[in-house]
Nucleic acid binder design. Structure first.
Lengths: 128, 128
DNA sequence: AGGGGAGTTGACGTACGCGTCAACGTAACG
DNA sequence: CGTTACGTTGACGCGTACGTCAACTCCCCT
């Protein structure tokens, strides 16, 4: 039931190269099991990789993402959980700010498109 | 009234180094005027730099951003404007997708924080 | 005239995120 | 038993985005 993936299956599923997966492992973002020397990726590894690729799309560094992943690793003492929770809240603030800025950028771009559309309409009018 | 900035004033205003501004210029993201050999940054350059730094925060490459900046450069023939407008719309789709994904990531993180808070509440209960 | 301070152009160095070999292991198939 | 396929560990290379000198030019000020 713990369906495991080979490195190739992971690559096909997530559109990354083996090099990338090994690199993430070296950077301690992933820690797949081994069957002999071969890597076996579990559901947990797939969840982590999803978060890694998502983080990258937002422009976070792998080191940033490594911190973030710790938040999703439910383990540790009470004080550890408290610390992690604080860290998570800090991330939340960051991400909400970025989302807001993205909204502003989208509005700007929309306005620019509207200006362009108006220009085009002008051209067509002139051509009639 | 075309208040221009020296390179140092730009750096202080945007928290970047001279090297960064010269690098952006070399990559044709900026094209400040010159007074002799010295760079003079106009309002237009400041607007562009704002867009550049914003784009970087979203994880876009400088080459991506160079494309984006063309959209904000209102100049050219009818067909040029049409082409630019199409490009802008493609960007809009991309950015809206990224914003949506950011929303999902934020929700995930919020849920994780809630789980942590529940755990902490449990610890406190046990300590009473 | 001399000395600062700000700016300029190379040129080399560096951190990050992988790409790309080479050389080897090993499990399976005919 | 050979070979074919898949996987492994180094090790070096490369593109991006700058940092960090060095060496020189201006311009201003006393």
């Amino acid at each position: 039931m713990t369906e495991t993936f080979s490195i190739r299956q992971m690559c096909d599923a997530f559109e990354v190269t083996p090099r990338t997966l090994r690199f993430y492992e070296q950077k301690e973002l992933l820690a797949p099991m081994r069957s002999g020397t071969r890597r076996l990726y579990t559901r947990r590894d797939r969840a982590r990789l999803t978060l890694i690729l998502r983080g990258k799309r937002f422009g976070f560094s792998l080191e940033d993402i490594r911190q973030l992943l710790e938040i999703y690793d439910r383990e540790g003492s009470a004080s550890q959980v408290v610390r992690t929770c604080e860290l998570a809240k800090a991330w939340l603030v960051q991400m909400e700010a970025q989302r807001a800025e993205m909204g502003a950028a989208i509005d700007d771009l929309r306005a620019e498109i509207a200006k362009g559309a108006a220009l085009i309409a002008g051209f067509q009018q002139a051509a009639e």
